[in-house]
Design a protein around this nucleic acid. Structure first.
Length: 554
RNA sequence: GCGCCCGUAGCUCAGUUGGAUAGAGCGUCGGACUUCGAAUCCGCAGGCCGCCCGUUCGAGUCGGGCCGGGCGCACCA
């Protein structure tokens, strides 16, 4: 929404260039919001950043730019050169009015951008093995992935979300064995339960289900030969549980992509054959190695083991080949940070497949430190002692969980205190933001009781909004589109969390000091209700991008 | 040992891609409800931005080197 101001500046630079006062080179105008009111509503460091290229003193350059500003729309009140060469802009009330009109005009589309217009994106996330329920760490990945998908959609991309199920390979076999051994235990066989099997209680639960289904049909089988059906059924049951947990968390996938299907359709074999023909793999010590080091990886990687069995990488290569063949302009993988050693080899794979590695964006999600009252909750997957996503969501609610998961950059560990997450106080920022929405709805309700209708923005006398607290709000609202763009480009949902928290802070401050409804002044009341409506819209839409509800009442 | 990530207020974290006097929340302390919701607001205190060099008009931000923490380094996934 600063577009007009930044266009104004660009045109001034162009004009000065035309007159040979400065070199005619394209510029990117960065507008910032000064911390100090005396530094104007907006500010740019353009003259300083251009100074060296233009071989001119920043302040002199700033003066030239100012001299060539043509403010046809009458937006500018005044400009000044400050400090080492900042240009500060003071805008007129008409500018703020235009901002509110724009928000009113665009409604829910306010903030939508065109950076992804005409492009498709695939966001793959969670993709936890169906060998046990999702834990909190998966929750963070789910929140980030889901929010990112929403953000990219807002940025114009046509987005598909996908969950890759590792329903083939060792871990599933181990799952089948784990369930089978528990089953044998229940039916009376005295068998050991090895450490490398899945220890969680859910395994025993599934074993009981198996008993219900099959009775004692397998009671006399050898523990070394788990029937295939144990693995398949167990994986299916667990996957259904995962799906339910995600649904409760507000996350739904467009597609569930099965690793097994890649094998069943021969995609893995075809890929390996293809790589053999292209000389991208070679045989050494009876195994087949992918020449990933030729594409930036630190060493080559095995795709077919000496025993003839393919590795996980082999199917992942086939999977990514499939992704790119589906012609996505942008392919986003969201992984747990413990897989970060895998990034180079996946990039190498994309390059080997003949695609630009840049089209694959890998986001690493660092671990979640679960706390209760500031003390760490011990977790260990192996021992089966872990807090599941479901338990967290049941305890603190979907919205608090999502908001907290998104409140920090992904590439750093996150502290998640269950007790804090439950508190409905300012310690817990999610309610601080939600409260804005509830408060505004409450104001609208009161207005309705008094038979005051919220005017359309173009029918309100918005020039009455002259308080600094009011222009602070509008200015922050005007920055929303930039925030969304930055969140989309950098793929950082946490930016929206901070944006909304800041908006909430500005709003609550205003709310405390001024009243929306002034019975003696319908014009001002109308203008303020329009302002409130704009805040309400942005809060609701912003929270929606996080997957958090904006309540009418709390 | 090598690679990736992170070191900013007592705690948890932002920092608009290199700009003005480094910000917010929590916590501590002190204030504000007869007016649209006090789940809120106002104020005080709190800093060698891990350390040292370098790059330039200018560095929390970029480069190099240390120190500290996390995570990886499989013919597991």
């Amino acid at each position: 929404m600063n577009i007009r101001l930044d266009e104004l500046i660009k045109r001034a630079v162009k004009r000065a260039g035309d007159q040979k006062l400065i070199k005619d080179i394209p510029v990117k105008v960065e507008l910032s919001v000064p911390k100090e009111r005396s530094h104007g509503h907006f500010s740019t460091n353009l003259a300083m950043s251009l100074a060296s290229a233009q071989k001119m003193a920043p302040r002199k350059l700033a003066q030239i730019i100012i001299d060539h500003l043509v403010d046809e729309e009458g937006i500018l009140d005044r400009t000044e050169i400050a400090g080492p060469g900042f240009i500060n802009f003071f805008v007129r009330p008409e500018y703020w009015r235009a901002c509110l009109l724009e928000i009113g005009r665009q409604g829910k589309d306010y903030g939508r951008s065109e950076i992804g217009l005409g492009k498709t994106a695939l966001v793959e996330f969670v993709s936890a093995n169906p060998t046990g329920p999702l834990h909190v760490g998966h929750g963070r990945g789910a929140a980030v992935g889901d929010s990112l998908a929403r953000i990219l959609r807002k940025a114009g991309y046509q987005v598909t979300t996908e969950y890759y199920t590792n329903d083939a390979g060792n871990q599933i076999a181990t799952l089948g064995r784990s369930v089978f051994l528990r089953y044998l235990n229940i039916v009376g066989q005295d068998v050991d339960f090895p450490e490398n099997c899945y220890q969680g209680d859910y395994v025993t639960e599934i074993a009981k289900d198996m008993l219900d289904t099959f009775g004692g049909d397998f009671a006399d089988e050898s523990p070394d030969q788990p029937p295939d059906s144990f693995a398949t059924i167990a994986a299916k049951v667990i996957l259904e549980g995962i799906r339910d947990d995600l649904a409760r968390f507000g996350v739904a996938f467009d597609r569930w992509f099965s690793e097994k299907s890649l094998y069943d359709q021969g995609a893995v074999d075809i890929l390996i054959q293809d790589f053999k023909e292209k000389g991208l793999v070679y045989q050494s010590e009876e195994a087949w190695w992918f020449k990933s080091s030729q594409f930036g990886d630190e060493k080559d990687r095995v795709v077919v083991r000496a025993n003839g069995v393919t590795t996980y990488l082999a199917s992942d290569l086939a999977y990514h080949k499939d992704k790119f063949e589906r012609n996505f302009d942008l392919v986003v993988d969201i992984w747990g940070a413990d897989h970060h050693g895998y990034v180079d080899r996946m990039k190498a794979a994309v390059a080997a497949l003949g695609y630009q590695p840049d089209r694959l964006k890998i986001i690493l999600i660092y671990l979640v430190n679960l706390l209760r009252d500031g003390k760490q909750v011990s977790m260990s997957t192996r021992s089966g002692e872990f807090v599941t996503l479901k338990e967290v969501v049941d305890e603190v609610g979907k919205d608090a969980a999502r908001f907290i998961f998104l409140s920090r950059r992904s590439d750093a560990p996150l502290d998640f205190d269950l007790e804090v997450a439950k508190k409905e106080s300012s310690e817990n920022q999610v309610y601080y933001v939600k409260y804005v929405h509830a408060r505004i709805v409450s104001v609208f309700n009161l207005a309705a009781e008094r038979e005051i209708t919220v005017p359309k923005p173009e029918e309100a006398d918005l020039l009455q909004l002259t308080l600094p607290e009011e222009t602070d709000i509008i200015r922050h609202l005007s920055l929303y589109p930039e925030c969304l763009e930055a969140a989309a480009i950098n793929m950082e949902p946490h930016r929206i969390v901070f944006y909304l928290t800041e908006l909430a802070s500005i709003f609550h401050h205003y709310y405390k000091h001024h009243r929306f409804i002034d019975d003696g002044n319908p014009g001002l009341t109308g203008a303020r209700l329009v302002l409130a409506g704009a805040v309400k819209l942005v809060v609701k839409e912003g929270l929606d991008l996080l997957g958090v509800e904006a309540p009418d009442k709390m």
